[in-house]
Design a protein around this nucleic acid. Sequence first.
DNA 1: AGAAAATATTTGTATATACAAATAAAATAA
DNA 2: TTATTTTATTTGTATATACAAATATTTTCT
Lengths: 151, 151
Amino acid sequence: MKIEDIIKTTAVLNNSNRIILNVMYTENVINEKFNEVLKPYELSGEQYNVLRILRGQKGNPANMSVIQERMIAKTSNTTRLVDKLLLKELVTRKVCPENRRKIEVLITQKGLDVLHELDPKVTEHGNYFSKNLNEEELEQLNTLLEKYRNQ
Amino acid sequence: MKIEDIIKTTAVLNNSNRIILNVMYTENVINEKFNEVLKPYELSGEQYNVLRILRGQKGNPANMSVIQERMIAKTSNTTRLVDKLLLKELVTRKVCPENRRKIEVLITQKGLDVLHELDPKVTEHGNYFSKNLNEEELEQLNTLLEKYRNQ
DNA sequence: AGAAAATATTTGTATATACAAATAAAATAA
DNA sequence: TTATTTTATTTGTATATACAAATATTTTCT
């Protein structure tokens, strides 16, 4: 469906404005669907993102600034996200003994189990949208988005 | 910059996952930049979106559900957004006399003036990103995003 | 007409985002 | 060694998002 029909505008949009709206709306659609996947686990998208970053550390702890710089939404409040994960016992945190300013965050076995259970559902979520494009188009879309962003 | 480098992952991503991350990250970049444009006016992106919808009404009032269905983020809380705009005297609201369940929202002259002042800055914001692509690529990106979203 | 259902909006609550300020520890400079 | 600067994280505050429940009005059914 064209973005003009979705936002029910009669205005003629130029390609520049249409991309802004299309990217924003597509992100919303992806997120809404992904939140449905996460809902039974009572995780938010950004909490899931933190868990993925921690699993990627393969047993090494990550401190707050490492998590921060690997997040998609760079302005997320990592402290509070980790707090929530701690309450659910999906991560542990302790002060780094070498540098007491730093906090070492680790994913727990429970956290790894949750991610493992989610893995196929996350794959399915990605395929739900990408199935509409062939491999060449998928490649193109990634390339165009990366090119578009470059300031 | 490739999304893998931005989120500093060593994992190999398939195109399906890369699109999800690329769309989410691109939306973030667009929004961060757009918030800078809006900041001097103390407007949020969604407040601006509501003002645009109201201007598009060309003098006719819009009720809450009309605003809602034209918004990009379909889950926004229209009541509270309109409340904020009302405090800034950018809109008016009154109960619809024909159907007292409905609320008629109108943009004020002050609201129109703010939008008019923002217009060139919004255009500039769109061009800031779209200048990286030629007309054909812009067209392609829009088409691919619209195709991608189709369930 | 009165009850029930549908529609339009508001309110409540928890969480998340955006951004500035505060705190604490470590590194560097005088 | 003390003061200053830098680094890492936390806290505060206002706003926004997500979603359920409440309220008010209108429409439909009997």
